[in-house]
Design a protein around this nucleic acid. Structure first.
Length: 873
RNA sequence: GCCGGGAUGGCGGAAUCGGUAGACGCAGCGGACUCAAAAUCCGCCGCUGGCGACAGUGUGAGGGUUCGAGUCCCUCUCCCGGCACCA
């Protein structure tokens, strides 16, 4: 055994051992409980970043811990390999997306291996390979035939200069990021997945997900947004619209129908187009509404504007004429593209009506005393439920009765009914991009849209393509889109859109179960492994990715492919990795971001940071605050450099110790030093144990006989107490305090008295073997080496997890806190089995109590067993 | 704008059911070892007052419930994540 800790040698040896024994390759085994430990697969962006290291370290800790608990553990890994960055890299560096992606995968895979994760690499998959996406295409055609995929118009960001569709991320302040052109909304035909068909099930099933964080379930619930309300039909006014018909709206405030004073439609609504035909001013306004991107955050924060159309509709109850307005805040993609406006009881309508001097009619009297009329400014009370006024026959009815009565009257007239509406919209999956899974459809002028037949799958994405950033590459490749109709054989055109990359990530976790099957999407092995027992990934995926995956699992269930409905039993959402930022302002007022590695900080005598300087020139820099590690802020710490300098175990230990998994992790170079120092101390104790302490072990063990000297019994109790705490913390995934417990155990072992060498050796042997096992999921390499070198016996991976022993934990005397009037005034030693009244008597008699009671009689004495005594005077 | 979350020493964080606030670590300060430095080891370390014993005070701000609140309730401030084409 080396007397100094040499991480590189230790880690290479351990990794070679695991490799040569295929330690992490796993097959189905019904004799043991299975544990499918899944981490979100990475996008192969080039190099691993700290977020990846954190994610996979947490996953690995769980995987290794459960393995020692006796589970049959699967921990797979793959690559979310389609996506925009590959196209951007292609434009920038003139590298084909496929080549760029595969090179990145190769590099990042080597990095993952260097970190020692217990991954079954035989199941590795990359979504950009035909072997993977052919099954996505196959499923697409099944879902299309089931009616779960359909085509309709969708709104996209259009860059008129580059003639291309932009992602929301590529629209900056309403302009295209490359061209700088003003972005417009444009409607194009797209394929949609009918996730709304599962809206109710996705919502209801949230209650059963006891292993998910409440906040994630709440976000999903609000995202699905089930609301009960009324669909109301406003008949067209023939004299202004010139034809019969009805304008449909949905409202959750059917009780306020009598207060509706106008209706508003989206700029793309047919009535808006009709009115604009003879009204240049309105046509100009509609054009204006089309400017800007489609991101909801932008739409929600922009100034609410509108214009009258001159058209009217008829109020379905009163028969009054209501004006039809075009408003920029009404969206064609939501519901019917029209809303009824009740300015007296809706904040947005209230502001709009004030701005355009539209009538405001109060129809609900709230419980709010001051609420007699709806005067500006807006009060939240205006939106309360209450009894109706100014509503004719409905006066006096409260919310639910009013909705019921109005719904009944609307139904009698055929002008509306109660309806459930979801905020959730169907999932538009068409992308006008190259680096994605081709949508397997063929457009024939005679037969219409025809799915590609199974025997023609996969539709292979050509890899010899030129990426320019203008237009859609596939739409320019005749060799790709020219084809013949599978039905009639005539020349036809292949669909040139690719799928949203969220589609690949919606089922990869099922494919891991049988990644080697070239003949089917999934096979019976999926029913052994699914659902994943633990899923680990960033909180930023709380809604979209997780909801799509839940939907996809159900869609595949209904195609008979899997038995389960929920893909992930337990969910752990990890926090971000953040680091300090530093910058200098250039003459143009731009910020030049400097990497923390190149900056030295100055501290005052208390250790507070007072200034920072660039190491290379010694001149000051501005301290910019902590932010998420990113390229743009240049505050990333390269995991590779960290592993090269300190080793994988130190990197893993620091990441686990620095913060609980679900909170943000603040990078700290000195914290890494501390982690490294701790591992050196562990190694040193291991070395001392193997060379000096172990030979002193007695032939007959006193641990078993219970004859330890009192001081060593205390050390042993402390170790088992920390172990108990660590096991509890493991259960709630609070791994940072598991490390704390390990540190406390090491402190206790180092300080254990050595007078009785034989008894000391026994306590250290037991305690150190606990420490090594406790650390093994977190720092597996050093644990592997120490387990061998200390002669604890057998393969560490196959060793059982340690459990605290009741005999070691037993205590005769407890120390209680003594309070007088809730203030800490002393402590109290009591027998472990003392009764409440005995404790009370002992407390009252104590010197500290006498002193602070100042002779007054006790009014009340609170005794919390094992904790404290509080005397109230 | 809407939805969700967070705030505890100089810093990261701990405190399990409402029961000793600051475990563990980092930084800092003092000391030992050393020719010296690094490494290592020992001690101190929330804030205010006090030589000290000790006292007061303290978990983003303000109120409340309780014998007792970091923890529960109400109001507010700031920061972070998501908002359907970043992944």
């Amino acid at each position: 055994m080396q007397d100094k800790y040499q991480p590189a040698a230790v880690e290479t040896a351990a990794q070679q051992h695991w490799e040569s024994t295929s330690a992490f390759r796993v097959v189905e085994d019904t004799a043991r409980p299975k544990y499918y430990c899944l981490s979100m697969f990475p996008y192969p962006s080039g190099k691993l970043h700290m977020g990846h290291v954190r994610n996979y370290t947490i996953g690995d800790v769980l995987a290794r811990y459960h393995r020692m608990r006796g589970y049959n553990v699967l921990q797979p890994m793959g690559w979310d390999a389609f996506g925009m960055p590959a196209e951007n890299a292609a434009i920038q560096n003139n590298v084909p997306p496929a080549k760029w992606t595969y090179a990145n995968i190769e590099y990042m895979k080597a990095q993952l291996k260097r970190l020692g994760f217990a991954i079954d690499w035989s199941r590795e998959l990359a979504t950009c390979t035909p072997a993977y996406y052919r099954w996505e295409q196959w499923l697409f055609t099944r879902l299309y035939e089931k009616g779960l995929i359909y085509k309709k118009l969708g709104t996209v960001n259009w860059d008129p200069v580059d003639e291309t569709v932009l992602a929301n991320e590529q629209v900056i302040d309403g302009r295209g990021w490359r061209s700088g052109a003003l972005v417009e909304k444009r409607e194009i035909p797209m394929y949609y997945m009918k996730i709304t068909a599962y809206a109710d099930e996705l919502l209801e099933a949230l209650d059963g997900l006891s292993g998910w964080p409440e906040q994630v379930k709440l976000m999903q619930k609000n995202w699905i947004g089930r609301s009960e309300g009324l669909e109301v039909h406003f008949p067209y006014d023939l004299s202004t619209i010139g034809k019969s018909g009805v304008l449909k709206v949905f409202t959750t405030r059917g009780d306020t129908l009598m207060g509706a004073t106008y209706v508003a439609v989206a700029a793309e609504h047919p009535l808006a187009a009709q009115a604009a035909a003879g009204n240049p001013e309105l046509a100009a306004f509609i054009e204006e509404c089309k400017q800007g991107g489609v991101a909801e955050a932008d739409l929600a924060t922009m100034e609410k504007k509108g214009m009258p159309t001159g058209l009217r509709v008829v109020h379905p109850i009163t028969g009054e004429y209501l004006p039809v307005w075009v408003a920029n805040y009404v969206l064609m993609g939501y519901g019917e593209g029209a809303v009824m406006a009740v300015p007296a009881h809706d904040e947005r309508d209230f502001a709009f009506a004030h701005r355009y001097r539209l009538p405001i009619k109060m129809v609900v009297r709230s419980t709010h005393d001051a609420y007699e009329n709806v005067a500006a400014p807006w009060l939240d009370a205006y939106a309360e439920h209450g009894r109706l006024v100014n509503s004719g026959k409905y006066d006096g009815l409260h919310f639910q009765d009013a909705v019921d009565a109005i719904a009944a009257d609307l139904a009698a007239k055929g002008l509306g009914a109660k309806r459930v509406q979801y905020r959730l919209r169907d999932w538009g999956i068409s992308r006008q991009r190259y680096w994605g899974c081709p949508i397997p459809m063929i457009h024939c002028s005679d037969c219409g849209d025809v799915p590609v037949p199974d025997e023609q799958l996969p539709v292979v994405l050509p890899e010899d393509v030129e990426i320019t950033g203008r237009g859609s590459p596939l739409a320019k490749m005749a060799s790709f889109y020219e084809c013949s109709c599978p039905k009639c054989g005539k020349p036809a055109r292949r669909e040139t859109d690719t799928m949203d990359t969220f589609v690949e990530s919606s089922w990869y976790f099922l494919r891991y179960a049988c990644a080697d099957n070239a003949g089917a999407m999934v096979d019976e092995r999926v029913n052994y492994w699914a659902p994943a027992d633990q899923y680990i990934g960033g909180i930023e995926h709380a809604i979209l990715h997780l909801l799509y995956s839940r939907f996809f699992t159900r869609a595949m269930r209904d195609c008979g492919l899997v038995e389960v409905s929920e893909p992930f039993t337990n969910l752990l959402t990890q926090g971000m990795v953040v680091a300090e930022t530093y910058y200098r302002e250039t003459e143009g007022g731009k910020k030049l971001w400097l990497n923390p590695a190149d900056v030295q900080v100055e501290r005052d005598e208390r250790g507070r940071i007072v200034a920072a300087r660039l190491a290379s020139d010694g001149e000051p820099v501005v301290i910019g605050g902590t932010e998420k590690m990113s390229k743009s802020k240049n505050n990333g710490v390269d995991p590779q450099a960290l592993v090269d300098q300190y080793g994988a175990d130190t990197a893993r230990l620091f990441i686990i110790f620095a913060a609980p998994p679900d909170q943000q992790l603040e990078w700290s170079d000195s914290g890494v030093e501390g982690a490294s120092r701790f591992l050196r101390r562990v190694w040193n104790l291991g070395h001392v144990f193997a060379t000096e302490i172990r030979p002193a072990l007695p032939a007959v063990r006193k641990l078993v006989a219970g004859e330890l000297p009192a001081a060593l019994a205390d050390v042993r109790r402390e170790i088992h107490t920390h172990l108990k705490q660590a096991n509890y913390d493991f259960g709630k995934h609070q791994f940072n305090t598991v490390v704390s417990a390990a540190m406390k155990i090491l402190n206790a072992l180092e300080k254990a008295p050595r007078e009785d060498a034989a008894a000391h050796a026994e306590v250290v042997e037991e305690g150190f073997s606990i420490l090594v096992r406790l650390l093994s999921p977190i720092t597996p390499h050093i644990a592997h080496a120490l387990w061998q070198d200390c002669g604890f016996g057998g393969e560490l991976l196959a060793t059982a997890w340690p459990e605290p022993l009741e005999a070691a934990l037993k205590q005769d005397e407890l120390e209680l806190v003594l309070q007088v009037n809730g203030k800490l005034r002393g402590s109290l030693k009591v027998a472990a089995d003392a009764s409440k009244s005995a404790i009370e008597a002992q407390a009252l008699a104590s010197e500290a109590a006498q002193k602070f009671m100042e002779g007054k009689p006790p009014k009340k004495v609170v005794v919390v067993p094992g904790r404290l005594v509080n005397i109230v005077v």
